[in-house]
Write a protein that binds this DNA or RNA. Structure first.
Lengths: 132, 132
DNA sequence: AATAAATACGATATATTTAGTCGTAGTTAG
DNA sequence: CTAACTACGACTAAATATATCGTATTTATT
């Protein structure tokens, strides 16, 4: 319960690695995967996603790889999470899906309130706070 | 990602229902299940768990059911979650399991920090805040 | 005493989500 | 032209969460 996914964890690990390597350095998926014991195929797919979202830039061909593109200090964790995983909420009723129990639910309000608290925590942390 | 389990949600719904019913009232699992569209078998098991943990008291026999026992204002959400689901953390490395990547992980510290933030949110909310 | 309405609880089954793998194609430095 | 990369969809496997079932016990009511 309340856990981040591996996709998010691996993303953060990779971003921090790239940041440590310097903004010009090009890091390949293979190197990062081996360095941190992450399944290569999975990491590759994740980095492709981050590239599509312009957080990193892909460099193709041999000696290729990725380097950081976005300013990580400008991206909040909640935005990052939702970029990778889609809408985030502690309960389905916080994810614009409409709930069957909607009309009779007796904890909707407090759950929404708590959800906002959690989102606020992640809104006030940027990627730099994790990767720097 | 970051979602509560149904077990937790159903618990909160049931507790709020019981609180609304008054502290002396005895509420049966069947009635609560039907009222909120919760699978009876599942709710029954959850209420048994809450009873074992002395949060509610079971009354056996016909006309039996449960009533609130603990002072809900004294129980933080984080304690409640861990009572029901066991250790809670946003990542495995926050759950005393030892992680293979431990020695090479580059995001352990920030993840721990964030985990503490989240726990702090749930520590500062009591069951009364949800059920009252 | 019999019955019916409850709780008690472990075992099992189902569904959903997450994680990981595979195959194939495109790109480019050397 | 080949080897080392990225790109991406389809697929499989594993983990987790959710739900169901079977059986036993308790007790108010009749």
């Amino acid at each position: 319960m309340l856990k981040l996914t591996r996709k998010v964890e691996y993303s953060l690990i990779a971003l921090r690695h790239m940041q440590n390597a310097g903004h010009e350095a090009v890091c390949s998926a293979r190197v990062i995967a081996e360095r941190y014991g992450i399944p290569y195929d999975l990491l590759a797919k994740i980095l492709q996603l981050l590239a599509r979202e312009s957080i990193i830039t892909a460099v193709q061909g041999p000696k290729g790889g990725y380097r950081i593109n976005a300013r990580l200090g400008d991206i909040s964790l909640i935005d990052f999470f939702e970029l990778i995983e889609g809408p985030v909420g502690i309960s389905d009723c916080n994810l614009d899906e409409d709930c069957d129990r909607d009309s009779i639910c007796n904890i909707r309000k407090p759950i929404t309130r708590i959800n906002n608290n959690i989102r606020s925590v992640f809104s006030n942390i940027t990627l730099d706070d994790v990767t720097l």
